[in-house]
Design a protein around this nucleic acid. Structure first.
Lengths: 247, 247
DNA sequence: GCGTTCGCTTGATCCATGTCAACCGTGGCT
DNA sequence: AGCCACGGTTGACATGGATCAAGCGAACGC
């Protein structure tokens, strides 16, 4: 299991199974809005699939950039390491989301992408994507939207880091996760965290103890039920109130 | 002065004066790397110029997006306003930089862009830009780089907000400004801030008093000379050390 | 099955930054 | 010239979150 035998039939089967046109994430991912015909062209482009085991790097800061990656399944984090040893998680990415957009600017990746669980990705060679998006305005426009959405998301994080208190940050974080799980057809109220308290803290600009205390407090107040990485959201509107109520 | 008379000669003169092909910011801005011929096409595209007085909005959060803007001269800030009244400055932009990239994703602007001094901008209708960049791969690729650079910049701010202390943040901020002024041919060591302490604080996730105290301290320690908005950097390496020395 | 490790929780204390408040300098307006 | 408003500085005090430290439970390797 997990082994792929390079027999012709198996390879073909694999390709068919993982083509964009058949992917159930296509409405969340790059193919959004494309016609059948256009999808076929994209299928040709997205030639490389790869499995990334939990803990493995998909790419590293400083390595040459030549492709962006769509997550087929699994869960990733990206982090940045400063010269002086500080590091920060800049994002958590799940199925249907794109990784590597930061590498376009300098032709080198500027962060590390690490799988938080066994994952599968589609590599999209960037020069090919640019070339194809010159032919397919819908693809071009959608790609621009995806990049722009990343900028908007980052502004949201800046807002969170710049103006919110610890519990507000964690509430915002949980609601965001919940909403993204919902968009993928999972329960909005119950999920497993793939990341540690320390990684959450790094992302939210907090120490792991503070994250842990906030979880405990949310539980005491009946907003959520926590048991290690298992989260059940009991009171969405409670969390929302917590998120934007300045005391 | 400041009045533009709509006489034919004047308008023509204005257009020639402000064409990308003649703009001394072209190497910092969108035209980077284009041939003469390609530049001519871009000149046709960038048809609208506008003056924005100090304090005026270039666009507002929620307003429909139809163009991105290149700053010809002047200085802007962008800020985001949350429902609960919190707001944060998400960036300061100077000549040669682009504004409005956040609007692509939802077709509406997601932040306010406000001039911090009398400024001039070039409006670039976005559908035209997409169309032209389908014809000019160099333009397409450069535009992608610019968007990607914005993402990388935002990661830097997240890092700053998530891991740095007040004085480190301010040192990073000053060094960043200095570097951007240098790239525009101004002194790297002496400049006027266009924003208030409160705006700096908002951007850096600090209160204005903290910003003020940090300025005073930098001055006491001989790293800079401050007088209101006039800044002289006396010791660049001192600031750099301050920026990434964990005490 | 047992020990080790890692991630998590909780408590006690400390410190950086926020908060509140007073005051000052500058620039704009009358 | 003089007043006013705004931005900036500085001080005293409060507090949220960091830090230090101890202990616990679940997962994993032997």
């Amino acid at each position: 299991m997990g082994q792929i035998h390079p027999l012709k039939e198996e390879v073909t089967l694999e390709v068919i199974k993982t083509a964009c046109s058949n992917c159930n994430l296509r409405e969340l991912c790059l193919p959004y809005g494309l016609s059948e015909e256009e999808l076929d062209k994209l299928d040709d482009l997205v030639s490389t699939r790869r499995r990334v085991k939990r803990g493995e790097h998909l790419y590293r800061a400083g390595s040459p950039f030549d492709a962006i990656y769509a997550i087929r399944s699994g869960f990733f984090k990206t982090d940045v390491l400063l010269e002086d040893g500080r590091d920060q998680v800049t994002g958590f990415q799940m199925a249907g989301e794109l990784l590597g957009l930061d590498g376009i600017s300098t032709e080198h990746h500027t962060c590390n992408a690490i799988a938080l669980e066994d994952s599968e990705i589609c590599a999209i060679p960037f020069p090919h994507l640019e070339s194809l998006s010159r032919d397919i305005p819908t693809l071009q426009h959608h790609f621009h939207k995806v990049m722009s959405r990343e900028i908007v998301r980052d502004h949201g994080v800046m807002m969170l880091l710049g103006t919110m208190r610890a519990e507000e940050r964690l509430a915002a974080f949980l609601l965001n996760l919940s909403q993204r799980f919902t968009a993928r057809g999972f329960s909005h109220a119950e999920f497993y965290l793939r990341m540690t308290r320390e990684e959450i803290g790094s992302y939210l600009g907090l120490k792991l103890e503070t994250v842990s205390r906030a979880f405990s407090r949310f539980q005491e107040e009946g907003h959520i039920a926590v048991q290690q990485k298992h989260i059940r959201i009991l009171n969405v509107s409670g969390l929302k109130a917590l998120m934007n109520h300045r005391p």
